[in-house]
Computed example of a mutant assay.
Amino acid sequence: MAKKTNGVSRRSFMAGVATTGAVAAAGCTSNTGTETASGLSGNIDISGSSTVFPLAVAMRGEFTAEEMHPNVDISINSTGSGGGFTNYFCTGDTDFNNASRPISETEQEQCTNNDVTPVELKVATDALTVVVNNDASWFGEDGEECITVEDLAEVWAADSKPTTWSDVNSDWPDEEIQLYGPTDASGTFDYFHEEILGEETGHRTDYQSTEQDNQIINGVANSEYAIGYMGFAYYSENTDRVTALGIDNGDGCVKPTLETASSGEYQPLSRPLFTYPARSALAEDHVAEFARFWLENSTNKAIVADEVGYVPNTEAERDENLDRLDSAIEAESE
């Protein structure tokens, strides 16, 4: 298993996940939840969203620190929201699934058929970010770079499928569009598809798809005529390498920032982020304690905003989700 990322800077961590794609805590103990002299012990397996991945790793680092619960081993695998639900969580193979969109009816049905009861917990808010090359001057300059929702939809729609930028807007260059984005197992893909393209319009498939957001950054940074999208946290670590486009949803251009995501100005690409523990897993003390720790720290600006790059929960959101968690723990203990 890979070495824990406890105690490293987020920039160092993000560079590492570009090549590994998954991080697991060192050592594997049985999932017993037995207590030791130093506190709880046991193993926790987490699958799911690449967007929530860095937040989960940051919370793991805090939770498993020497002065906290060093004998709890937490394995985190970046599979995409849908890939995690379908292949790991709803089959009963992981304790949590991270997601950048709500669980679907199909996934919920799969979970139910396997006696898995997901507990939805909101852990942060993200500003899904559209990025272009720093030399893509046709979108504007000096912080004014912008695209309308209609033009963004035209770029990514399967039915229109333009090949050059001038196919979208005659004032733009007659150069081939190069596209980078998440796979269709990603919650980021699902959210972008729903909010930008709509249910009736297909998402084009002729693009470079990956579950590794840093590969999207690299592709866009290396091509003047490229465009891509991912969670805000990955862009925030690469502001010198790519340019974030503002989104004009009909009321003027709004740039993705923690402030505009928190205020609701950044529409339609501001979105909630979730983790879903399995209710049965919450019967284990170490699993329940980690879920509670994550929610209690979901309002922590130093971790959620400064270290990772997302909007923290409000105190009201934290308390609402803690109540939901406590109800699930209580139901499982009956």
Rank of each mutant, 00 (worst) to 15 (best):
S209D: 06
E141F: 15
L197C: 00
T239L: 02
A226K: 09
Y235R: 13
D167M: 02
T148K: 08
T205E: 12
W165R: 03
F139I: 11
V130N: 06
A221H: 07
Y229A: 01
V131E: 05
A124E: 11
A127G: 15
E211V: 04
T164Y: 03
Q178I: 13
E175L: 11
D171M: 03
K161Q: 15
Q212A: 12
I217D: 10
E199K: 04
Q212N: 07
E211A: 10
D126V: 06
T164I: 13
V149K: 05
A136G: 08
T205R: 08
E199I: 08
D167N: 00
D159C: 04
G202K: 14
A153W: 00
W165M: 01
E199A: 06
D213R: 02
E211F: 04
E150G: 12
V220K: 05
V149A: 13
E150H: 12
G140Q: 07
S137V: 07
S170F: 05
D126M: 12
Q215A: 11
T148R: 07
E141I: 07
I227H: 04
A124G: 08
F189T: 01
D151A: 01
S223I: 07
L179Q: 04
A124N: 13
H203V: 14
N134I: 02
E150I: 07
W156C: 03
T210V: 04
S236K: 00
T239G: 06
F189V: 00
G219F: 14
G140V: 10
S186F: 14
E200S: 07
L152M: 01
T129H: 03
S209A: 11
S209N: 03
T164W: 10
Q178D: 13
E195K: 09
A136M: 08
W156L: 10
E237S: 10
E145R: 08
A127E: 09
I177K: 02
E145P: 11
I217G: 14
Q215H: 15
G231S: 10
T201H: 11
L128I: 03
T239M: 14
H203P: 12
E200R: 04
A158E: 02
E224N: 13
L128V: 06
N222D: 15
A221M: 09
V132D: 11
E211Q: 01
R204V: 14
P173T: 13
K161A: 14
E176W: 11
A226D: 07
R204D: 10
T183V: 09
T148W: 06
K122Q: 05
D174P: 03
E145Q: 11
W138I: 03
T163R: 09
T201A: 14
G143A: 10
E194D: 13
G228K: 00
C146S: 02
V132Y: 05
P162L: 03
N133Q: 07
W172A: 04
Q178R: 09
N133G: 09
D213F: 06
M230W: 00
D206C: 05
Y229D: 11
N134K: 15
D206S: 12
